[in-house]
């Protein structure tokens, strides 16, 4: 399959996909919780970055911001050069759908639909023409090594296979950014190894921009670039 960048914004190698500039996120509880403090982060096209940290450190908040599921309290977030801070709910949804692929710890598959349907559903909101969806889904499933499971229901698959379906769904529409939230949290070590190998392959061969958020040091260490987050502060490890 060809992983083309979405039309609209010119994206070249080395062009920053993600730019966080002085981003803070404060939750209006009493007392207020400073989940992220003046975070600056740039992720270039084709980079593979892991974000690690203990629970409560602000990992999930950062992921929600990167995935346009949440808004920063202050600061600027540019995705593919688009300033997302000004966008309304609708625009954020469409940017999210077209430019970001999500992989969740809990897979979030529709258990009453086939594997193929699950990957097709990932494209219905993205203005991808109907006749392109199935070929794209099949190509993505082949890419993750699940071509033989196309007509299965997700609840008949192993955990590793389910996560592969979720990855196929996340890459089928050729996103600018693949966001993975604890992708191996529900998997055993052998399966974790296979999934991590798949990520590395997607990064190296297909040039996908990959952000993996995890609390697992071993998983985190496999990324070429590792960012730590503790108490809402980012530190880049060498």
């Amino acid at each position: 399959m060809t992983l083309q960048a979405p039309t609209g914004v010119a994206v070249g190698p080395g062009h920053p996909v993600v730019e966080l500039i002085d981003v803070s996120r404060v939750f209006d509880t009493t007392p207020p919780v400073h989940a992220l403090r003046d975070v600056n982060l740039a992720i270039a096209d084709g980079e593979y970055v892991s974000i690690s940290g203990p629970s409560g450190s602000g990992k999930s908040t950062l992921l929600n911001l990167l995935g346009l599921l949440d808004r920063p309290t202050s600061g600027t977030y540019l995705l593919d050069g688009i300033d997302t801070s000004d966008l309304g709910d609708r625009r954020r949804a469409s940017v999210r759908g077209q430019r970001i692929g999500f992989v969740f710890q809990a897979f979030h598959l529709l258990n009453t639909r086939t594997v193929l349907d699950n990957v097709v559903v990932g494209q219905i909101y993205n203005r991808i023409p109907r006749n392109e969806r199935k070929p794209r889904a099949i190509a993505a499933l082949e890419r993750v090594g699940l071509a033989h499971r196309i007509d299965f229901r997700p609840d008949r698959l192993s955990g590793g296979e389910r996560q592969r379906v979720a990855i196929a769904r996340a890459i089928a529409h050729s996103p600018s950014l693949l966001l993975c939230d604890e992708p191996t949290g529900n998997l055993d070590s052998a399966t974790t190894e296979a999934i991590m190998a798949l990520f590395e392959d997607l990064h190296r061969v297909d040039g996908l921009t990959l952000v993996v958020i995890t609390h697992d040091e071993a998983v985190s260490a496999r990324a070429p670039r590792t960012v730590n987050i503790i108490d809402g502060l980012l530190t880049e490890s060498a």
Partner: peptide, 16 residues
């Protein structure tokens, strides 16, 4: 609810 969250992540707006 999980499916709704997923669809939002896949790009669905509130009205969808």
């Amino acid at each position: 609810i999980g499916e709704i969250g997923l669809r939002r992540a896949l790009g669905a707006g509130r009205r969808h």
